[in-house]
Structures are given as structure tokens and as C-alpha cells.
Design a protein around this nucleic acid. Structure first.
Lengths: 142, 142
DNA sequence: TCTTGAACCTCTAGCTGCTAGAGCATGTAT
DNA sequence: ATACATGCTCTAGCAGCTAGAGGTTCAAGA
């Protein structure tokens, strides 16, 4: 029987976050003591570990909800889980290439800066005029 | 004299976003018609372009605030602007390496999945047990 | 058994950076 | 004069938490 604090600690989660997961239905409502405090079993620890690990891998809470559901039906085809992971992989790859374009642009900006006055700072100049950019970077909406 | 709609269009911004920037003090309060509609000059167009371009490069609104301030003082040393850009570059690089660790892990997960039932799906298995991971990925807080 | 104090409880509000919608006013073209 | 696209303000919502106020419970030590 774990308190919420112990559960949080074991999974590297904040106590508030655990309650938040319960609130949005990602974690089940646990049993309570007579005084009204939450007490957790190992099953809930496993579930939270799953959630946290999935978050670390960048899955959204909605995706995690799906994955948890699938995980509870061991006889179902693995196809859906696979697809969710594949989708996540694609997104990660997209974000990487966007960030790489950014990196390139930022590197160039910083490198070209002469270290003089802001009046002729390359950094500010580039920001002022997109046409000076080489790549089609776009982090907004990434 | 541009309407807010024209300004938004020219900079690839949504009208609401322009008003939002004004609200948080990133854009100045523009002149108004007798009826109370905003009208913009070229200076404001330039400023919004600067903001948008900086956003595309991933700068936070706070960083942009700084950059704009510096940009208004052409005699000041370029050092600070440089530093902000360098910081942004570092962040981008950190994010890239985190995402690359993720990609690796996700790729492995997807590849190892046999396509059978969820009961022995590698994807779900890996999510259940972090110790199966090779890398120290962590997207949370990235 | 009593007392302390850390950990728990609920509830509300805030973070970033927008975005959407309701309900109404303005501006411009015909 | 009229239509209607665009403008206005205000409020609320998105993800995924996080922090704080103000109060209660639990477990360990005296």
C-alpha cells in the first residue's frame, strides 16, 4: 500500500501530476483510507510507470490512453499499438529535421555576428529580414 | 495605412494573434480610426515581421522582447543579442539530441514488434519497462 | 496517550502562445 | 441606401502540468 507521495517518488512524478492523471481519467480512482487519503497497489504503480515512460518517449496523453487500452487486451492484434508508435516516430523525425534547419540558421547568424554594435548586428539583421535565410525553417507549430 | 487584416496577411499571422501581441505589450498600441479600428504603418509591419521571424526560429516571446529592445538601440554592444541567439542555439541542439535518442528508441520498438498480439507486443513491453531502453531518452520538459 | 509535523486533502488559478466563438459595430463598394 | 466583409471586445479553451491557499490526517516519538 503506497501513499500518493511514495507512488510519485517511485515513478519520478509530482504528486499534483498523479492527481491530475486521476482527474482526467488516465489513472483510476484509488482506494482511500478512512480519513480520505489515497492508497495505491502495485497495479497502479505499473500503470503510472507506463504512463510516465510513454511521456518520456513523447507520446501525448491521448495516445497513451489508447496504448493503455490496448495493453489491457492481450489478445488483440498488435497492429494498432504499432501504428501509434510509428506515428510518433514520424512526428519525432519531422521535428528533428525542422530543428536541424533551425540549428543551421542560428549557427550562421551567430557566426556572422561581428561583435560590434547592434546597429549592424547580423543576428538582428537576419531576424529583420527573412529573405536572408537560406532554409525554410519554421518552428511555429512544431 | 493597413488594417489589422492586411497586416496579418502580409506577415502570415492571424488577426487574433496580432491583437494578442498588442495585449501583452509586444506590439505597440496602433492608431485608430474614428470608429475605433486599428490602422498600422510600415514601422509596425517591420516589427511584426521581426517577431514572426523570430518565432519561426524558435525564440520565446520573452527573448523576442529582449531582441526588440536591443534592436531599438543601434549604438549598444551587440553582445547581448549574440548571447540570446547563442542560448537559443544551445537549446535547439539539446532538443535535437534528445529527440535523436527518442527516435532511436522508437525505431527499435517498432522494428522489434512481431505483428502478433498485444500480449507480446514489443512496443507495449518496452513502454511497460524502462529498463529495456538503451538510451537515456527524456522528452518531458524538452 | 498525546503531540508534533510531514504529508495529505480540495479547490482555484497560472504557465506558453496562441485560437475560437459570441454578439455587436464599422467601413467600403455598389 | 444597403449589403456584408471585416473589424471590435470579451471570455474561454487547448496541452500538460505546476503552485499555492487553507485546512485535515497519519505515524512516530515522548
Amino acid at each position: 500500500m503506497l501513499t500518493i507521495g511514495a507512488l510519485a517518488k517511485k515513478t519520478g512524478t509530482k504528486v499534483q501530476t498523479v492527481r491530475y492523471y486521476e482527474q482526467i481519467g488516465l489513472m483510476p480512482e484509488p482506494g482511500r483510507t478512512e480519513g480520505g487519503q489515497r492508497r495505491y497497489h502495485t497495479a497502479e504503480l505499473d500503470r503510472l510507470s507506463f504512463i510516465r515512460h510513454s511521456r518520456q518517449l513523447g507520446f501525448t496523453l491521448d495516445a497513451i490512453r489508447e496504448l493503455l487500452k490496448l495493453s489491457d487486451q492481450p489478445d488483440k492484434s498488435c497492429h494498432e499499438a504499432d501504428e501509434i508508435a510509428q506515428r510518433q516516430l514520424n512526428q519525432v523525425e519531422q521535428r528533428i529535421s525542422r530543428l536541424e534547419a533551425l540549428r543551421k540558421e542560428l549557427k550562421r547568424m551567430v557566426k556572422e555576428c561581428s561583435g560590434g554594435h547592434t546597429g549592424d548586428c547580423r543576428v538582428l539583421e537576419v531576424l529583420r529580414d527573412h529573405s536572408e535565410c537560406l532554409t525554410d525553417h519554421n518552428e511555429i507549430g512544431a
